[in-house]
Structures are given as C-alpha cells and as structure tokens.
Design a protein around this nucleic acid. Sequence first.
DNA 1: AAATTAAGCTTAATCGTTTAAGCCATCAAG
DNA 2: CTTGATGGCTTAAACGATTAAGCTTAATTT
Lengths: 336, 336
Amino acid sequence: MSRRTSLKDIAERVGVSTALVSYVINGQEKEKRVGKEVVKKIRAAAVELNYQPNQIARSLRRGSTKTIGLVVADIANPFFGNMARVIEDEANKQGYTVIFGSSDENSGKMGSLVDILINRQVDGFIIVPAEGTDLQIKVMQEKKIPLVLTDRYFMEVTTNYVVLDNFGATYDAISHLIEKGYKKIGMIAYKSNLIHMKERIRGYIEAMNNNNLGNEIRIEEVRNNHVGIDVEEAMSKLTAGERKINAILFATNALTISGLYCVQKLSLKIPEELAIIGFDGNEAFDFFYSPLTYIEQPIEEMGKEAVRVLIEQINGSTKIVHIKLRHTLIKRQSSL
Amino acid sequence: MSRRTSLKDIAERVGVSTALVSYVINGQEKEKRVGKEVVKKIRAAAVELNYQPNQIARSLRRGSTKTIGLVVADIANPFFGNMARVIEDEANKQGYTVIFGSSDENSGKMGSLVDILINRQVDGFIIVPAEGTDLQIKVMQEKKIPLVLTDRYFMEVTTNYVVLDNFGATYDAISHLIEKGYKKIGMIAYKSNLIHMKERIRGYIEAMNNNNLGNEIRIEEVRNNHVGIDVEEAMSKLTAGERKINAILFATNALTISGLYCVQKLSLKIPEELAIIGFDGNEAFDFFYSPLTYIEQPIEEMGKEAVRVLIEQINGSTKIVHIKLRHTLIKRQSSL
DNA sequence: AAATTAAGCTTAATCGTTTAAGCCATCAAG
DNA sequence: CTTGATGGCTTAAACGATTAAGCTTAATTT
C-alpha cells in the first residue's frame, strides 16, 4: 500500500506550511485569513493528490473518533440485526461510524468487548446489557463514558435508556387473549433477572390478576443456553394434565420460534387447542399455518432514539434520558 | 471523561522513561534488557493505574489498526447477519475488530462506505460487492489494499474471493426436481449482472438442457428494489396459462420469502400444484405448511475462510486465493 | 511620523505510542 | 591498563493532523 498523501505532501507541493493546509481543508480559511490564491492552490492540490484525511491522526489529536460502539446480544438475531441496521444508518447520517460486537448474553464477553472498544477510543456506547453487568455499566457511568442502554436497563444504575414498555406490551397481549375468551393462559419466558424479562412477566401477572385469573397463572422460565430442550419440556408440561392451558404468550422472538417447533411436534391445533401470541415480528410467524398474533416492537424508533440520545450525550449533555416506547399488537389468526 | 492513564503516567510514577514502560507493556523486557526490579515496578504500576493502551495512538505509530472493514448488502438480512457474526468471532480470535456498513446493493453507497473505512485506516476489507462496483474494486486492488470478496466476485477483476459454487448449487437443485419427476420447472432470480446470479441461472439452464428440457426453460428476473410487486407478477405469469410450471426454484432467500407470500395469496397446493426449492435456510421455511426444500450455504465456513484469507493478505501474502464452497441440498416436503 | 491594526503566513507543541540510536556503568578478557 | 562486551537505561524522532502563539509586511489611523 503506497503511502497515502498527507497534509505535508500538499504543503510541500504548494509551498506553504501544513497549518495553512489544515485550515483550508477544515474550511477555516475565513477565520484564519488565508489568502485567496493560496486557498485555490491548496484546494487544487488536494483534489489532484486525492487527499483524504487520516482519521486516526485526527482522532488522536482531537480526542474524538466519531465512532460509536454497539454491543448487542447477537448480531445474527434478526431483532438485533434490524436494530443494528437502523443504528448504522442513523449514526452515518450524523457522521459517525459503528463498531459492533456480540456479547452472547455473557457478562465476561461483554466486559472484554467493552474494554476493546474503549481502547479503540469510541466516543460512546449503545449497549444491550447482559445479565449481571450492572456493575460494569455503573463503572462506565462513573467514568462519564457516554452511554445509552437499550432493550433493557438496570433499576439500580441510573443511565440513559431507550426500551420498550414491556409491562404494557404483555399486559395488552394478555388482555386481548382474555377478551377473546381465553382464561387458562400460560407464559414461557427466560429465567433472568433482567428488567425486560421481569417486566414482561409482571405485565402477564397483573393482567391475569386484574381479571380474577390469578390462580390460573402458569409461568415457565427457561435457560437461555438450553432454549431447545427447556422450551420443549415447558410446553409438554403446560399443555398436558389437569390444568392444561389453552393459550400461551412467549416472551421473546427466539422463544416463540422454539415454541412453534414444539407445536409442530405435538401437533397442536392453533388456535383451537392453543392460542398463541409471539414477540417481535418474524417471517416465520406469517407462514405458520395459523398466522401468529404478535407484539411488534418499534425497532426503528428505538434505534433512532438511542443514537439521538447518545450523540446528545457525546456532545456534552448531562441530563439523563429515559425513553419507553409503545408496542403494537398485531392481531391475527393464532388468537382468534 | 477524566483523562485515562498513559504510558507517561506510569513512567513518572516509577521514575523511568516511557520507552522502558512501552517495552515492558509489549513484553519485550528480555530483548530490550530491562532490569528485573524495574519490570516488576512497571507491571505493578500498570495494574494499579489500570493502564489500557490507547489503540489510536498505537495505530498511528504502528501504521496498522487491527481493524477489518466489512461491507455487506444489508446487515439486517439474516444471511449477512449470520455471516457478520461468524466474521466477528473469527476476527476477534485473531485480535481484530470489525467495522461494518451496509451498501444496499448500491454502488454509490458502497463507494462512500469504503472511503470512510479507508480513512479510518482499516487494515483490510471483506466485501460483498454491489453491482457495478468492479472498477472500485479494481482501484482498491491496484492500491494494494488487502481485500477479500465474498458471496460474489468479478470475472474481470482478479481478487481473492470466497463464494458458493453457485452453478453447482442450482444444478443440483434442478437435478433433484427432475429426478422427482418435475419437468416444467421455472426460476425466479434477480435482474443482475453479478456473477452469483449469473451462475445460479446458468446452473438452472444447464441442468434443464442436459435433461432435454431446454424448451421448458422459464426464467423471470425481478428488480431488487421492487421485489414485492415483481415477484407477484412473475409468479402469476409462471403459474398460469398454457405453459404453466409445476416446480420453481428461487435464487435467493428474499425471493423465496416473497414467493411464499404469493403462494399463500394464490393458494397454490405445495408440492402438488407447485414444487418449491428455496435458497438459504430460514425459519420461515420450516413453518411453511409444506416445509421447504432448500439450498443451504456453508455460511460459517465462508466467513471463516474469508477472515483467514484476509489476514494472510494483511500479513503480506501476495498470492491470490479463490475459494468455492459446496452447498447442501436439504430435501423436504415441498419437492416430494 | 509614529503607532496601531490587519492580513497572511510560519513555528512548534501536542495527542500517546513505538523504536532506533546512543549513553554510561560494570566486568571480563587480552 | 586498555578494549570490548554486556546490561540497563534515556533521548528524541516519528506517525499525521490540529491549533495557539508569534512573526512579517503592508495598510490605516492619529
């Protein structure tokens, strides 16, 4: 890779100091009173030599990289993939570049990911925090590293966040099922202390309680590293025996998909034997023989807001922003 | 953000020059004969002050950022999302970080994306090139920028690439359909000059010809920015009239999904009225009432190989590598 | 005519690391 | 007692861009 042209090259060709070139390149020729002729020559040389500023040098000097670090659970998960896309576009619009990493919901991995990104001097972070990373986040917060959490947050740590109104979402979903006449409603969620899960479960419970169905509450919590077998076990448990349910709410996209595989296996009739509500959109929901009712998240808004808030923060704002966005319940055949 | 600790801080605390600290931090205490006591003190101070090297400064000095630029069509597309994930993991293993961007199959966007990444001094690129970017790629190649193309490549530009044996994949798929007794087989592909599309189409044509079905060949090419309506039109055309087909091959994941929506709309019986073969895996294929036969791509291998080849290139290898990987045909009900 | 202001430029430090080159002991060998 | 290693350290330049401060010369003001 032959050396790229630098400010110095232009300076030499035009016969001036690098300072002047820098001023012109950065559009400060007025304030710094650079001569008209010289400005022209510098511009011409820059074009001719195809000058592109070295962002690394610039970053070192300016102390800002115009880069944001994005940490999600798994970029291959469509929910996070879509979010990443929105964030990418929005960041680009504002002149920022995105570096990403997947934590796999693992606190250790998230820690080293964050370290790497800090060493690369990202200007700020958008993070989907893994379980047990409250301390990590707190430390970042104390170091005044600009930071926005999304999808989830920690009650004990005061940070910016942009999340779904998870309680409202599941409350609404359960209310809809009840309205349709279902009473024996179960739920499959992750075993997790993360707030989004707690809130989704709370929405379910309160909706049940408020409709005098408190004693019908049946929640199965599965391990996120054994989704396949755990969901299978949970489904068998819930759909058999005395207290067999006739409707179910899944707490995430992945859980819904896993649940659908079980439904196939157990050849349950949807919605006759079991009504279903899923989480997030997914093409698979459309092609399931009984198209799924699901809770749609405003991914686009979420990503955009996250970037907006983060950049405000990077630009020095110190106010803490909490944003809860509303879902949309897409009603279809699986909950008729 | 209070200033982070630098080499200088450690040097001052221990009472030595920054050079020594740098040597120790980089594990060169042997070659550079640093005193045992001093090494200990420096190590202790580094830990105590929680020293983390500033990668920006390091990059500037070393002329290498340990960063790779990944340009895909759209990170929100599961195929590319999965690939990104594999690349991320593999790159991390080798000490590299990934910066990504989505081109939307748009040559202009790809150009500016590449420019941005070059200015950020990425050490090399993994690119899924958009149509009409052969010149861009050629220029990069001439500038000796380490580079691996994937998913597609250009016949006219000699670069490294890691792709699917697209011809073999569709040839195999069509052969399977013919074996199953289907003769009136159509195909829906993108209108594109990109090699992967050409090869997929060529595989279809040759398989048809080699089975004396040359006069049954029916290809519909749709615009990638109007997938919805174009596929609908193509499907109506192919599945009606005199020469109505009884089997179809889709050239990509997105096309398959679009096609399935049409199948729902036209309420075609699969596979009785129409056998289907899709491209790439997708959960939706599993839940379609007649689970889809599809061409599975070795995404993991593809991503891993791309990273491997790129890093070889970054490390100075000048040999050009061409890798074609084999698909797996997952046979299921939709082509029985 | 002296003093001030403005225009147009250069110098040099700086960001945090890396690394070639050199300095100064100490010690062994001749 | 000189020479040459060897060990253990420092100096300072370099990477490429930014920017405060200062230096000329010419023009304007008093």
